[in-house]
């Protein structure tokens, strides 16, 4: 059922996930296409955000959770292995959240935050990273004259793009986006969507969205989840014109969920 005609960057095998005794994900198997945009859709509580957080161990922060099965990055890195350093992992797999969360620092310091933590202090390097990251995040032209003013003065859409710039600054390979536009107005949403399309090709992007039109606009592949199970995974064009399963069709046409 799952498409395989692409290069895979993460291979998910027989993944089960539990919050305490309660199972949230059931036997998930999928390949994440490299340098493509994959959208996760499904009704609230279907497990899509839980699954997204498995990719960079964000569930570690939740507490009483357990996971079996595997997520293998680049054929050899076992994301869930106890010896895998989550901080190292998150440099390769960045995350953008529903609500933009810039630090109460300047725009410049927000972008270089990850690099400074990693020990990079060289001004010329930092300057260059700020410029390239902000350019990639389509924010440079709007903020280049006020890099040292507070990030808290930016609009919601600009803050979200700053968070994308901050994620990009540490040069990740994969970007996880958890409903990145749900708090934005249509114009800012359109800019973020445009940005996602621009970033595709350089980065692998996985986006969780409640907005089905957004999934159909920005993604190459779509995975539909229901009650903790991956129901259907396919090319977005196919999912939105001719899904293979009635359950997928009923969900995307608004007949349930």
């Amino acid at each position: 059922m799952n498409p395989t005609d692409f290069e895979s960057v993460i291979s998910v095998k027989e993944l089960d996930f539990f919050y305490g005794q309660s199972q949230a994900l059931f036997d998930i198997n999928m390949e994440v296409p490299k340098h493509q945009v994959t959208a996760f859709i499904g009704p609230s509580g279907c497990g899509k955000s839980t699954f997204l957080r498995c990719f960079n161990r964000m569930n570690d922060l939740v507490g009483d959770v357990s996971i079996t099965g595997s997520l293998i990055l680049d054929d050899y890195i076992d994301i869930n292995h106890k010896d895998q350093d989550p901080i190292q992992l998150r440099r390769r797999i960045g995350m953008i959240f529903q609500k933009s969360n810039p630090f109460p620092k300047s725009i410049y310091e927000n972008v270089v935050y990850g690099l400074r933590i990693a020990g990079q202090g060289k001004k010329s390097v930092l300057n260059e990273v700020v410029e390239t990251s902000l350019k990639k995040a389509a924010l440079w032209d709007e903020v280049k004259d006020r890099l040292h003013t507070s990030a808290m003065g930016l609009s919601g859409g600009q803050m979200q793009r700053l968070c994308i710039a901050r994620a990009i600054a540490v040069n990740p390979e994969i970007l996880l986006m958890d409903e990145p536009c749900s708090a934005l107005d249509p114009k800012s949403t359109a800019r973020i969507e445009e940005l996602i399309l621009d970033l595709r090709g350089d980065y692998t992007i996985i986006i969780v969205t409640h907005n089905m039109q957004q999934a159909s606009r920005v993604s190459d592949y779509t995975a539909f989840f229901f009650e903790g199970k991956l129901i259907e995974f396919g090319e977005t064009g196919q999912i939105f014109t001719k899904p293979s399963l009635k359950q997928t069709e009923d969900y995307i046409t608004g007949r349930f969920g």
């Binding site: 089905m212 939105f240 001719k242 069709e249 995307i252």
Partner: peptide
């Protein structure tokens, strides 16, 4: 309504 799937068809 931007129909999809069976609705679009």
């Amino acid at each position: 309504h931007q129909p999809v799937a069976i609705d679009l068809r």
